[in-house]
Design a protein around this nucleic acid. Structure first.
Lengths: 205, 205
DNA sequence: GGTCAACTGGACTCGTGGTACAGTGGGAGA
DNA sequence: TCTCCCACTGTACCACGAGTCCAGTTGACC
């Protein structure tokens, strides 16, 4: 039982690193089994095909990402009870976290699968969709709390504003991947933070 | 001579549509030659391998994208000479353009290649990089013009702010791809526009 | 009539995904 | 201690797509 869990998650670890490094299609089962020191048969014992691997990878990724957001904004809330300040602190923490990663954030599995989605079945695509909708809901909730207290200085679509957190992170990750820089995502988050500050700043009367 | 150009760009047309639809790796040479009604030999006569195809695709994409931005902001400038208003009009036009595409924007080749970049050689990756750096320069220039006239209400990193245009578009495209919605990118651009409005709004004294 | 660019078409190699299945080693339960 | 089953190993095999090689064809133009 221990070994089962062990091998399976070892496969996932190796696969995740490889997929984030060079993309799903470019990662061969051969190199995964070599890295995990198992046989090809062993791989197919755990995952019926590459699609099943993709699904497991996505599930795990979304779970840890969600946990990370939970933790981040819980800490922010401890530091300040005001919804706006809590959001601003949370974003700052997120930006710092992204920046502290020595090689930069590995890149988001979401975007990576979104652009290769025909390789996957409907289930995987739906997982992807649900993850983003989940983040929309999460951030939209936080933003509405803010808006209830501080009237926005310009009219905004709250769903879109909630999406902007994911969008800015995804976009930043695309940039830093393509540019081979390492702090674009965190800078983009900080700009979004500035946007929120301006949007919800109390009107000078 | 005519036929050469004709066949080559016919290949590129078919390949571009297929790549944007399902990703580079998922597009087989078989289907490209079937679509273009040529033989496999004919394909390899024009492109020595898939990498050469990717490069040509990227070059063409970047060229048209640049031309589009040129055109868009030239029209915006005609409508209003003030740098801030010109930028705001240009962004509005961009958002409208994205929205008018019936099936939504096909998705950006940049992001798609960024997440599969190990399939390509250094040249293709560099092309990608240069394109984004070009956009950074373009938008940074426009933003500096604005900042010279309207003092920003919050300190911002101008390179990052220039990148935010690309980032917001790329991020929006990732979202609409994954969500299967069709106006996320344009909404994200409109939010960025609101950000600029707030950032450069003249201070009430 | 000869040359060359732009192909066609077929045969072949190689890497990768995926199937099938027989066998094995070790731990848990009877 | 025997048995069973889980978690594999190892091998053989197929399909498919990328890429190579090359011999031959067609049409334009000098």
């Amino acid at each position: 039982m221990e070994q089962k869990v062990d091998t399976r998650s070892r496969i996932l670890d190796i696969a995740e690193a490889a997929v984030l490094d060079k993309g799903f299609e470019a990662t061969s089962i051969e190199e995964i089994v070599a890295g995990a020191e198992i046989s090809r048969g062993g791989f197919f014992y755990h995952f019926k095909d590459k699609n099943a691997l993709a699904r497991a990878l996505l599930e795990r990724y979304i779970e840890t990402e969600d946990a990370l957001y939970d933790d981040l904004f819980a800490r922010a809330r401890e530091l300040n009870d005001d919804p706006l300040h809590c959001m601003l602190i949370g974003l700052k923490l997120l930006a710092e976290m992204l920046e502290e990663m020595p090689k930069g954030h590995p890149g988001c599995v979401i975007a990576s699968t979104a652009y290769q989605d025909r390789l996957f079945d409907e289930g995987v695509r739906d997982l992807n969709r649900q993850a983003i909708l989940g983040w929309r809901k999460r951030f939209r909730g936080m933003l509405e709390e803010i808006a209830a207290k501080y009237e926005p200085r310009e009219p905004v679509n709250m769903d879109a504003l909630g999406d902007m957190v994911s969008g800015v992170v995804e976009g930043g990750l695309v940039l830093q991947r393509a540019l081979r820089e390492h702090n674009n995502a965190s800078e983009q988050i900080m700009l979004f933070r500035t946007f929120l500050k301006l949007l919800f700043a109390p009107k000078p009367n």
